[in-house]
Design a protein around this nucleic acid. Structure first.
Lengths: 76, 76
DNA sequence: GTGTATTTGTTCGTATGTATC
DNA sequence: CGATACATACGAACAAATACA
């Protein structure tokens, strides 16, 4: 799943996996994306890495984050 | 603000800027100095460099650091 | 209304790898 | 070779706001 030896940073790999779930419709607009904690568990990474993944998704314009709530798939 | 081409290391330049704020009274004794993160944002450097700046300020005896809390201007 | 769990926000500590000077 | 600088990654601790039983 995650390749720590790949040239692509782990946080980008995770971001791309989530992005694929969005693109495929598995994660529909308005729906919450996995929490940092669940990403830590699912991918076996540090919270720092999970946070970077979410930040990457935000930078890609795919999600938005609400403090103390979570991140959600952007509409449109 | 920061001159990456100067002979003085960037972390020292930042340390001197903070030191000046302390000397001028802008940062009073007991008050927290900017966090590593805010230094990263304000000066556009890596966290590593921000940490070196704080370490420099500690070495100069101007601040002390509390884990998971921050660094503060030394009294006296 | 009260407490507990969840979730993001923020902070410093540590280590590794790469590149440059 | 050593110092500097950046990027990545994991760890630890606490705060604050929200959600829920």
């Amino acid at each position: 799943m995650i390749d720590h030896d790949a040239p692509t940073p782990v946080y980008v790999q995770i971001g791309q996996i989530i992005a694929e779930r969005i693109r495929s419709g598995e994660l529909a607009p308005g729906r919450p994306v996995p929490s940092e904690k669940s990403m830590v568990q699912e991918f076996g990474v540090a919270r720092d890495t999970a946070r970077r993944a979410v930040a990457w998704l935000r930078a890609e314009g795919l999600v938005y984050t609400v403090a103390q709530r979570g991140s959600y798939v952007r509409e449109g």
